[in-house]
Design a protein around this nucleic acid. Structure first.
Length: 397
DNA sequence: CATCCACAGGAAGGACGGGGGT
DNA sequence: ACCCCCGTCCTTCCTGTGGATG
């Protein structure tokens, strides 16, 4: 038994490809962030008042995914924290992961060393405790709210409003906010009061171009890979592919890492270009699979309906047509169907996670509907559906 | 130029299963 | 023991709508 474990561990440790894979992981914050010097300088200068234990202005940060927003913010804050230890506290919350109002507040409290039950209390009660906790806290607090656009779209700007008012409920101002968003138009959704209070300073993160991505990848690769296993053209390919997708550095790093993992799995001594293409597919496959596996039952049925109709080539699907197919599937499985209203929302949800594409169209005389199609390979969807629930297997005889 | 299609999507609320404070 | 909370799915009822058609 322990032999097997030892064997696995030792082969894992003696990787022929990687020195340390960690440097390619999405949550790794490197010591230097190339091509983000301007943003670092600007954020640092806004946060500088922390040194005198004064409240910095609130900051709003815009930029597409993988443009280094999170990394830069974490980088500056942790450097500051090390430099003037104990003069402030910072709390980072990704509101895509911590995705309910309750959990955001609970997380804030937790970070301030206040224990709260993970359910049961009212939002108002949590807020009251948060005000109390901050009042009793004797130094500055910086709260980073990452991906708040997704959060506000799902709920509303209620908590943001409450949070932005927290300073006025505490004897002296000591809470600053850094809001990070992928969606530039997001501010329009905000209450004007929230907007003006939260975006005292605004910073934009432009996408990386292929050259910059290559630079970033090269630096990371030097730390992550063994010398000589990674040809330059592989890095260039990863950079090029990611540049095509709006300069997403995280995507580029993922490609590089998974390509390396594939090389390792195949016991190859070098990372080849073809592995990058394989990596791209593997990343996509895993993403889709993970999403489908955790989908509610009726969402899977709706997806099944769309997938089954997508075999007939280039038929434009509408909500009504999908719903009919869905009803048929329900009948076959002996399942009580849900309403079209709900199915309409489910289609939007599947669009949001990138499995379907749904576009609202007006067809004049022929009404308003959605044009629906698969956003990813059908085989991946069908495979994942069957894996997630054996009942689906019969539908694809 | 009004009409009218085939839905979109907001509002309110409910059942249910996770849990509270006092 | 009592009445309260939240998040997740879902229903019911509803008003809104761009443009091809007549």
């Amino acid at each position: 038994m322990s032999d097997i474990i030892d064997e696995v561990i030792s082969s894992f440790r003696t990787s022929s490809i990687f020195v340390n894979r960690e440097y390619l992981m999405p949550d790794y914050i490197p010591d230097e962030l190339p091509h983000r010097e301007d943003q670092i300088r600007k954020i640092a200068s806004i946060l500088a008042p922390l040194y005198r234990e004064e409240k910095p202005n609130n900051i709003f940060i815009y930029g597409l995914t993988g443009t280094g927003k999170t990394a830069v913010v974490k980088f500056v804050l942790s450097r500051f924290h090390k430099k003037f230890l104990g003069k402030f506290k910072y709390i980072y919350i990704n509101t895509r992961q911590i995705d309910t109002p309750y959990r955001v507040l609970a997380d804030l409290l937790e970070s301030l060393d206040v224990k709260v039950p993970f359910t049961g209390l009212s939002i108002a009660e949590l807020y009251r405790r948060l005000v109390k906790a901050i009042r009793e806290y004797d130094s500055q607090v910086v709260i980073v709210l990452d991906e708040i656009d997704a959060f506000v779209k799902r709920y509303n700007d209620d908590i943001l409003y409450k949070l932005s008012r927290i300073n006025s409920e505490v004897n002296r101002s000591k809470v600053s906010f850094i809001g990070i968003t992928n969606d530039v138009k997001f501010v329009d959704l905000l209450d004007p009061r929230v907007k003006s209070s939260l975006s005292e300073e605004e910073i934009v993160f432009p996408p990386y171009n292929a050259e910059e991505l290559e630079d970033i990848l090269t630096k990371r690769a030097q730390m992550a890979f063994r010398p000589g296993v990674l040809p330059d053209n592989v890095i260039r390919l990863c950079a090029a592919l990611a540049a095509r997708e709006h300069g997403d550095a995280r995507r580029a790093l993922d490609l590089l890492r998974v390509a390396g993992e594939i090389a390792e799995r195949l016991k190859d001594s070098k990372v080849k270009e073809e592995y990058v293409h394989l990596a791209k597919e593997e990343i996509e496959r895993d993403r889709v699979r993970d999403i489908i596996l955790t989908l509610p039952f009726h969402s899977k049925l709706v997806l099944t309906a769309v997938a089954s109709m997508s075999s007939e080539d280039n038929v434009v699907l509408t909500t009504g047509a999908v719903y009919e197919t869905y009803l048929n599937i329900c009948k076959k499985l002996g399942v009580e169907p849900i309403t079209q209203r709900r199915v309409s929302d489910i289609i939007n949800e599947l669009d949001m996670v990138g499995i379907l594409t749904a576009k609202v169209v007006n067809r004049g005389r022929y009404g308003k509907t959605k044009e629906i199609g698969l956003a990813v390979d059908k085989n991946i969807i069908v495979k994942s559906l069957i894996e997630s629930d054996s009942r689906f297997a019969d539908l694809w005889g």
